[in-house]
């Protein structure tokens, strides 16, 4: 009996502290966020998903820091945390989501064959892809960067690229951009970004052209490699949704808008990358005052720098 009293007392004490802290927190905040309700008003999910009681979402498992598995087999990363936020809002728990690992090549087939509800798997917007699937509002704005050896000086991109060997992954936006715009550049296509890093280290390629989010981590950790200042092909990523599923698209869009208004994407990004990269990535995530837009009506990979 005495123990019961002690436990009750302890619980009450903890509850009091938590309440006090949570009441104090909003008071300290200013601006629009403080007035937002904790959860946006979300439309109804499609019946099938609602009755299942959890999401089935396709993510990358080989693409740190967006979708990867840590050494204990847990799905981690920016895309995965976005999915978990969706689950929390839809079903009240961050764990009400089953992940399916997709690769770059398998993600759209995985979506089309209804194995998953939608895919959050580093999917860059392209006009051609939008013919076969729908995109949600953008949830991340990737940009292309060049990874080179420390000793390499890159001047104007156009002049420098001539006669160089550039490596990237097949089917990527960079692959098409180089083919379209840099006819005098040798393209070395490699199966994964990590083999691109090796190609630069070994001197088989002069530079690896890839997403900044991947390269920043590499450059920070490899003493012999660095990123140049060029930034190109900043095309946002979106959640991939099957065509003709307006309910699903409306739900995902509302959730993304809600996360943007509450600055949750930035919170996730802060968990995803080390503090020293914060300034680099501030512009890449949708925030209350940072709206990303797809370059609809243009073909970014055909726009050549002059």
């Amino acid at each position: 009996m005495r123990r019961l009293v002690a436990i009750t007392g302890l619980v009450a004490l903890v509850a009091a502290i938590v309440t006090a802290l949570s009441m104090a927190a909003p008071a300290g905040k200013t601006g629009s966020q403080a007035t937002l309700p904790p959860k946006p008003r979300l439309p109804a999910l499609p019946g099938e998903v609602r009755s299942r009681g959890k999401f089935l979402i396709g993510v990358k498992c080989d693409f740190p820091p967006f979708g990867w598995q840590d050494t204990s087999g847990r799905n981690r990363g920016y895309d995965v945390d976005t999915a978990r936020q969706f689950a929390a809002w839809a079903f009240g728990s961050r764990s009400k989501v089953d992940f399916t690992c997709t690769t770059t090549a398998s993600r759209i087939p995985t979506l089309q064959s209804k194995r998953v509800d939608f895919i959050i798997s580093t999917l860059t917007w392209t006009a051609q892809r939008e013919l076969t699937i729908d995109y949600s509002l953008p949830y991340y704005g990737a940009a292309g960067k060049l990874l080179v050896k420390n000793s390499v000086i890159v001047g104007r991109l156009n002049t420098w690229m001539r006669g160089k060997t550039i490596t990237t992954t097949p089917g990527s936006i960079y692959d098409r951009w180089i083919k379209n715009c840099f006819k005098d550049t040798t393209l070395l296509v490699v199966s994964s970004p990590s083999s691109g890093v090796l190609a630069v280290k070994d001197g088989r390629a002069d530079a690896l052209m890839f997403d900044d989010a991947f390269l920043v981590g590499v450059a920070a950790n490899a003493p012999d490699l660095r990123l140049t200042n060029h930034k190109f092909l900043d095309v946002p990523w979106g959640v991939g949704i099957r065509k003709n599923e307006p309910e699903m698209k409306r739900w995902v869009d509302t959730a993304i808008r809600g996360m943007k208004a509450r600055d949750l994407f930035w919170k996730i990004m802060q968990r995803t990358i080390p503090r020293r990269f914060y300034t680099t990535f501030k512009q890449n995530v949708p925030r209350p005052k940072n709206t990303l837009k797809y370059p609809r009506g243009t073909v970014p990979e055909s726009a050549c720098p002059s």
């Binding site: 740190p64 598995q69 991947f214 950790n221």
Partner: peptide, 11 residues
């Protein structure tokens, strides 16, 4: 390999 590439710079 991919994880090590971003986390340590060495695949």
């Amino acid at each position: 390999v991919e994880n090590l590439t971003t986390q340590t710079g060495n695949p």
